[in-house]
Nucleic acid binder design. Sequence first.
DNA 1: TAAAACCTCGTTTTT
DNA 2: CGAGGTTTTA
Length: 689
Amino acid sequence: MDLSHLNPPQRSAVLTTEGPLLVLAGAGSGKTRVITHRICHLLDKKVPARSILAVTFTNKAASEMKERVVHMAGQRALGVTLSTFHAFGAEVLKEHLSKLGWPKKFAIVDTGDQIALVRRAMKERQIDDKVFDSRKVLTLISRAKSSGTEPQAKPDGEEGEDIELVAHLVFPLYQLALKAQGAVDFDDLIVFPSRIFEKHPEVKEQFAKRFRYIMVDEYQDTNKAQLDLLRHLGDSHRNVCVVGDDDQCIYSWRGAEVRNILDFESLFPGGKEVRLEQNYRSNQVILDAANSVIEKNPDRRAKRMWSEVKGGPRITLCTAPSEEDEARWVASEVKRAIVEGLSSDEIAILYRVNGQSRFLEEFLREREVRYEVIGGSEFFDLREVKDVIAYFRVIANPKDEISLLRIVNTPARGIGDVTMERLTGWALEQKVHLFEAMGRAAEVETLPKGAAEKLGEFVALIERYRKAFNKGNLSHLTRELLAEIQFIDSARASAPSLAAGDRKAKAVAHVIQSLEVYEKREGKKASLLTYLNRLSLDTKSDEEEPHHQAGRVTLMTLHGAKGLEWKLVFMVGVEEDLLPHSGMQGELPNPEEERRLCYVGMTRARDRLVMTRAATRIKRGKELARTPSRFLADIPEQLCDVVELAAIPVGPPTVKEQSFFSALRDRLKSEKEPVVAAGSGLDSQSTDR
DNA sequence: TAAAACCTCGTTTTT
DNA sequence: CGAGGTTTTA
């Protein structure tokens, strides 16, 4: 294999195959290249492909990496296991979950189900879910699980938060409920393999023997449970190579432990460390600015990224009077860049929270700029989508009570809450599953015969389709089922408008289409349960993909941007309380992580970076004065061009730039004195209202 | 049981 | 301001 186009540290990372290895890979340092080359190098060294395991965080990263490795090394690379932590865990569980007392076929629950299960557990413990937020309880449970423990109550009740006690009390019930319906959650996918390895050393040995070479991408985002799993797999041969950048750890709110990377040496003693500090993405101006922001973080592995591209346009810092003006200006700049010849897919607009995309979309549309909003809730949050999936779940697994309760009266078929409440009580007494109880509703004395009849019809419906679905023809049957229950009609009827009804119908069609794609690919192996589990592990995979058909400007959150790059990047809303986001009451703000987030955003830009803010923003219907982000103050002035918008640009998009010196003078000045750009004949807009 | 008024509450989200 | 959930009413 040709290693000549790798720089010395990269080459060293590729060639160091034995023993623990930490690759500190700064932004844009060719991290993926190192991993793929390293895999190919191992293959060249006659390491069998099936002995190599590489884990990433996203399916996208995994499949892209696999593609590249196969492209480089050919067919022999197909045997390399390249998957996400969660998919790998699911593979282990497929074979061994019964060792923990679960059924062989298990389902993977999503966040919605988790909350429902927590709610129910709280109810069982007679804890009011208005007093304690079930989502917060779930967060605590998940935190505990992903750090390899269980929710603890504060010892002796000393000034502990009550919600922690709630999590502690609810956790066993929650876990039991999962087991009862033969399901696991995302955290279990990581935690259970470790538990199985601990209880059954022979299983652990089987895996450790097979995977002699292990690689982990985005190591800075691993949590404690993932580290545990990694140690189990690697502690015998110790050929563990982790690649990451502590400066890009932006998921600690989800349990990622920066310490995993900061303490690598003590976790894997005797390991080697390689630093990749040459950046192949951005010019030096962008890197200097980004470096000066991230430098302020204490407790990091000192790195200073540098680029061979020394020059570059200065960073544009733009202040707009309002959020709307900010969006309008950004849209104009985007349009101008495109008119000047930059391809749309070389442009991104990044923001801290999804809600910020609204105005941007509006003005991009106005200028006929093609764009794509990545992320946001959208599709799977639609009620109808959830409903259809709940039907799938019940058909695949009638023990799934949460889904069962969801669909039992959608569309309305006269089975109300009271009926289900009584039935649940009876099922508990009789110690049978709810679905079985529904079939035997006639035996329940407290139920009117009408209700029992309707329940019987529903059970018959599900049973009938259950048998049918077992024989395949999934998407066709789904259409049949939905037609029979008049799902689409009633969804349309419940929609507030005709357009909303169409959207619902479209969404349902989308689900069926996704099932169809899956079915075509899997052929005879296709089953509802595997489809559902795949859906949980990779929500995007079967979506239609018009992404690359034409260039589009990308709009997404800073979180979503990690690992990506564009020639021109806009970061909008660079303001206090938004970019260093102010956590809500109760949540501890993490300024260091916000700083990393800012760093991640800045380092996405190859050629030019534009950071904007609004002097005023409407929040909850009230106009609020805004102050510039503290991160802006950390960027050396000589790296910046300041633009102060005084009023709405009229006519063709114009930029009002101050001279360099007045820019210096006015930079980060209080927004109470709006500066009218030199030479601009536009009125200044008063902000003192 | 279902529609209508009412209230409350706003992060990020690879899996 | 607006979505979503909850309580009120027919």
